[in-house]
Amino acid sequence: MSRLANRRILVVEDEFLIAAALCDMLEDASATVVGPATNVRDAMILLQEQEVDAAILDVNLNGAWSDPIAEELRMRRIPFIFTTGYGADERTTRFEARVVAKPYTWEEIDDQLALALLDRCQS
């Protein structure tokens, strides 16, 4: 059984094909996908309306940083990982978040998300 089975994962990604592939991978791992959201506003609405166990956030959403979402997740103690084509930066350091560089593999997403969930359990 997948480490992400029965987990509700918020997906925040502005590139349609990347979001679709990521959602497919999560569903294949028996996770429940929340979203995907393509912008900060929609992600914040989903967080208000849905239960979420963890999240995958694209750092840059059509030119807007995903920082407000990361702040909300951190405040709620919901683990998350960043995905980015830009590499790690001060955001990943500031939020003490794991980062997966694009293009990524399912194994990288699965490993880092599972570690983020484990980090929450240990803190």
Rank of each mutant, 00 (worst) to 15 (best):
E13N: 12
E13C: 06
D14E: 08
I18Q: 02
I18M: 09
A19R: 06
L22R: 06
L22F: 07
L22H: 06
C23Y: 07
C23D: 09
D24W: 08
L26H: 05
L26P: 07
A31N: 08
A31Q: 05
T32Y: 03
G35N: 07
A37W: 01
A37C: 10
A37S: 12
V40N: 09
R41D: 15
A43D: 09
M44D: 08
L47R: 05
Q50K: 11
V52T: 08
V52P: 04
D53A: 09
D53T: 10
L57V: 11
D58T: 10
L61R: 00
N62E: 13
G63M: 12
A64L: 12
A64P: 10
P68Q: 13
I69H: 01
I69A: 05
M75H: 15
I78H: 04
I81Y: 00
F82L: 08
T83K: 03
T83G: 02
T84H: 01
T84D: 03
T84V: 02
A88L: 06
E90Y: 00
T93K: 13
T93P: 03
R94Q: 14
F95V: 11
F95S: 06
F95R: 02
E96S: 15
A97G: 12
R98K: 13
V100C: 01
A101P: 01
P103Q: 05
E108W: 00
D110K: 02
D110Q: 09
D110Y: 13
D110F: 08
D110S: 14
D110A: 12
D111W: 02
Q112F: 00
L113R: 03
A114G: 09
A114V: 03
L115I: 13
L115G: 04
